[in-house]
Nucleic acid binder design. Structure first.
Lengths: 242, 242
DNA sequence: GCTTCGGTTAATGTATACATAGCTCAGCGA
DNA sequence: TCGCTGAGCTATGTATACATTAACCGAAGC
């Protein structure tokens, strides 16, 4: 190969294929053929195969029975169940944090994030970029506070799906007033979760974190129920089949 | 290749390597080299690589930063957290079953399994083979009753680890009387879970299923606390690192 | 007409040669 | 002595030729 490249071919293939799948270019149930992809991407079969295996590991592809890979098809029930599942797992993280005791520096950091979110959503206009970033930081910190690698790993797996991440649908909202109401309500839950953890109230922390995830569920219903077709802005639902 | 073989080389490598890891032949943190394994197994690098990727998918290996694979190292906290996590997920399955309503045929099948377990553990001697088989069937049915593919998938992932399966430690028990007590107590929980599902008592079903998983936790403590070294019979804990 | 057999084809499985990157360490110079 | 540098080694990355298998399809026979 003449041209030096910083990334490997397998990583290139992985990025391109992941983006294609997430954008809905390959509908659920589509079988992906190594030769066709290798030809299309101008990469040999070996790294393409490695990329497909990794996408299966991420949960975007299923392994077909006789070998090969199929794009996983997500029904609406899969989306709602996965969001509920994220709530269950984040609830467990919150409970662990409360039961085991959060580190003082983590609690201080949590308070800091809460205050920064307050600043971002205070006033008439909400700084959505800042909120999205801080919201992600909050959920990452929540998992850290649980002090459990096993739990961290499972939460990472579930939230790898685009519609299950804590920040899903934040960019997809249409009406600004509904978005503002949702964001402010969600933030009250953020505060309640941290307070419950600080007070070692495990059951409360779990229940609130669980309910917190259901805010995403409401967004899914709003997006799918409002218009019969798929809203143009709902990037997180692009790979939803039928 | 002259000799016809029913299974592929990759499957052979997968089986052998999985067994080796589960038996503790490669301690946690050990890096697995493709060439060495290929040489040892008399299989070329390509299928060995496929096997390693699949073991990473199963959670037995981690991908190293610069490429390559490392045997995942499990600390005692990972074992206990994973078992607790299984309880959380099976609890969610029980709750889903209760909330959504179990199919009549599933409830009938559950009753049948409960009665068969009664027969197996009734009397002085417990038929452990039968109990192990029926216990697995019960937990499979529980997941079925939840009617959620997303949940089924995550439970399958978590219980793929040898120490997290519902039937882990059933063969590892030393004292027959303690085993009998544990098994009979566990079965009472089986009955309570089914009853709660039938009565649509979601919170009760979740709580009991969660507690049910903690029986496995008690077994881990008994096995690790009793003797300083690793008990010879504790196959499920063979891959636990120091 | 239906079934069954056999060949073709199109996919994945496998082996292997070669490329490349990262590490170690010897050697040299300031 | 320290640090730089480059050679070489060893690992994974990549391309590709070939093997194998399974599914499709058409023709022959019942």
């Amino acid at each position: 190969m003449a041209i030096k490249q910083s990334t490997t071919r397998a990583e290139q293939a992985l990025r391109v294929l992941r983006q294609q799948i997430l954008s809905g270019a390959h509908p659920g149930g589509t079988r992906l053929f190594e030769v066709a992809l290798a030809d299309e991407l101008d990469i040999s079969r070996t790294p393409v195969r490695a990329a497909l295996a990794k996408l299966a590991e991420e949960g975007l592809l299923d392994r077909a029975k006789g070998g090969g890979f199929v794009v996983r098809s997500f029904k609406l029930a899969d989306v709602t169940d996965t969001i509920e599942l994220r709530g269950v797992l984040e609830g467990t993280a919150a409970r662990f944090a409360a039961e085991r005791g959060a580190r003082p520096e983590d609690l201080r950091r949590a308070q800091q994030i809460l205050d920064e979110i307050d600043a971002a959503i205070w006033g008439q206009n909400i700084d959505m970029d800042a909120y999205s970033r801080l919201n992600s930081a909050f959920h990452t910190l929540l998992v850290d506070m649980a002090q459990s690698d096993a739990l961290r790993r499972e939460i990472a797996r579930v939230t790898a799906l685009p519609f299950a991440s804590p920040s899903a649908f934040l960019e997809d909202e249409g009406e600004a007033d509904r978005l503002a109401r949702n964001v402010r309500a969600a933030h009250e839950q953020h505060r309640a979760i941290v307070e419950a953890i600080a007070l070692r109230q495990g059951a409360r922390a779990e229940a609130v974190a669980r309910e917190h995830a259901r805010a995403g569920l409401r967004n899914v219903r709003a997006l799918t129920g409002a218009s019969p077709g798929r809203p143009e802005g709902a990037r997180a639902l692009a790979l939803l089949s039928t």
